[in-house]
């Protein structure tokens, strides 16, 4: 009748099995599949991710050069990451922090075709718009260093801002405050910044019976 006694007493004097979640967070596992993000400057807008996604959460417009993911619809399967031909899609180790509203992850890059056309015509003006998060049309675009405005680069600050800050409702304010002067440096520092700006909260995956 009292076989449970041993367990009960050992629990009384051993460590807790649970943790006080939002305050104590376990280190994520290195290969955990978390939030999806895209290095938009590498993206070639081939639409493979959109075609492969089982939950159809990714929309790519190869004319306008937009890459949009609905994080609420994403099922964290990583099929797009596996299939991306230029390996510009990655998953963080952690899930997004919960937000009270539905936020889309929208990135704007330069589709290769548009870039080629632009280069052929006026190599200076066309790519200037590249890389601005869709939501705003910033007045700072003219300041962007023209040398770096080649299609593969130059989107650094904005992309970083977009992917790191996507969960914050105040997305619009962020890029304006960014110094648009050092895009290359930003682009290089990006992966680290990504890791550092990792949300400190660790959401648990879908559990319980579904």
């Amino acid at each position: 009748m009292f076989f449970m006694t041993k367990t009960v007493f050992s629990n009384l004097f051993s460590r807790y099995a649970t943790r006080l979640h939002p305050f104590v967070v376990r280190e994520p596992f290195p290969d955990a599949r978390g939030e999806l993000y895209c290095e938009i400057e590498k993206c070639i807008f081939c639409m493979t991710c959109q075609r492969k996604c089982p939950s159809q959460c990714i929309t790519v417009d190869n004319k306008a050069g937009t890459w949009t993911c609905d994080p609420m619809a994403c099922v964290y399967c990583g099929v797009c990451v596996d299939n991306c031909p230029v390996a510009c899609l990655h998953q963080k180790q952690t899930y997004r922090a919960p937000t009270p509203e539905r936020l889309m992850l929208s990135l704007t890059g330069t589709p290769p075709r548009a870039a080629r056309l632009a280069k052929a015509k006026t190599p200076e003006a066309a790519p200037a718009r590249a890389g601005e998060p869709k939501a705003e049309v910033p007045p700072v675009k003219a300041e962007e260093p023209k040398a770096e405005a080649a299609p593969e680069k130059g989107e650094g600050p904005n992309e970083e801002a977009a992917s790191a800050k996507a969960e914050e409702p105040k997305l619009k304010a962020a890029p304006a405050a960014k110094p648009a002067a050092k895009p290359a440096a930003k682009a290089q520092a990006k992966p680290k910044a990504q890791a550092a700006s990792k949300p400190k909260v660790k959401a648990k995956g879908g559990k319980g019976k579904a």
Binding site: A32, R33, C77, G78, V79, Q91, G205, G206, K207
Partner: peptide, 29 residues
């Protein structure tokens, strides 16, 4: 109830294996 916690406590170890090796806890894909 206490047995419930006990079983789920053990289960959590397997869930950790799932997450560490496949990337997801439940729907491992």
């Amino acid at each position: 109830e206490s047995q419930f916690m006990q079983c789920w406590k053990i289960r959590e170890r397997i869930m950790d294996v799932n997450e560490a090796t496949t990337g997801n806890r439940v729907i491992v894909s």
